[in-house]
Amino acid sequence: MQLIINGLVIGSIIAITAIGLSMIYKTLNFVNFAHGDFVAFAAYIAFFANKELGVHLAVAFLIAILATMLLGVSMEKVVWRPMRRKKASRTALIIISIGFALVLRNTLLFIWGGSTRCYDIPVRRGFDFFGATITHNQVLVIIVAFILMFLLHYLLSRTMIGKAMRALSDNIDLARISGINVDQVILWTWVIGLGLAASGGVLYGLVTAIRPSMGWYLLLPMFAAIILGGIGNPYGTIAGGMVIGLSQELSTAVLPTEYKFAVSFVVMAVMLLIKPEGLFGGAK
């Protein structure tokens, strides 16, 4: 039971962080390796606002999301859009994103050092839940993550901009032919995707220690979740995230904890072998 709860917590974090990675992957056709470091960036901004500026964590949460969105939007305007205009190859884009990942991670290391940090929140006793202990923070993570998923669902299925985001990730050429302002919708995809990644990062900081590499290590489970759910399929990504989170945690019952991340590797590899389009379809 304890493992299932831990799995759900980490699963919801993987799910909401991976959605942005998945949508950008499918829309722009490249893997943004800096995505995980945006997650860490958000956690640090929240930590900075919460601990060093002394604002409430909820406010710090919003500040972190806005800061991450802003960083993402500037990246899009300064780097990705000009690179698209130049018809940069996919490899070039991936290398740029790896470079940016390193810069971002080492900037965090430079400013706050390598030691682990945590938010300024009271440590409270967890409560019993069918024989398992569940902490307030874990409850908070699950609730916030589910609210965000619901909001995302509303955005994607009920609003024009959300539908256009799905249209772009489905068929960007046809979106252009339909007269949709593709650059503007891509900007929105970054804003939403990184907003979710930032929320995930702040939530992650609630259940784990904040350190510069926290996002980088989350990237692998995120990939596993995306492949499981079908690239570019946000709902599949949520389900994939849950499956990966649960299988990682449940594996610790039979395997040493160090092998936790290997489990996502195995799940991803098996998935690619037997059903490469993902459980719920997506990119071929």
């Binding site: 024009m160 539908k163 256009a164 799905r166 249209a167 489905d170 068929n171 050429d173 046809l174 979106a175 252009r176 032919i177 339909s178 007269g179 949709i180 302002n181 593709v182 399929n233 379809g281």
Partner: peptide, 29 residues
């Protein structure tokens, strides 16, 4: 996108619809 605004429509040869969107959403796009 400006050509569309001026009143021209185009049905390309392949992938002429958004396959993961519903019929209504396709029309909305």
């Amino acid at each position: 996108e400006r050509i569309v605004r001026k009143g021209m429509g185009y049905v390309p040869q392949e992938k002429e619809f958004f396959s993961s969107l519903t019929v209504l959403e396709n029309l909305e796009m």
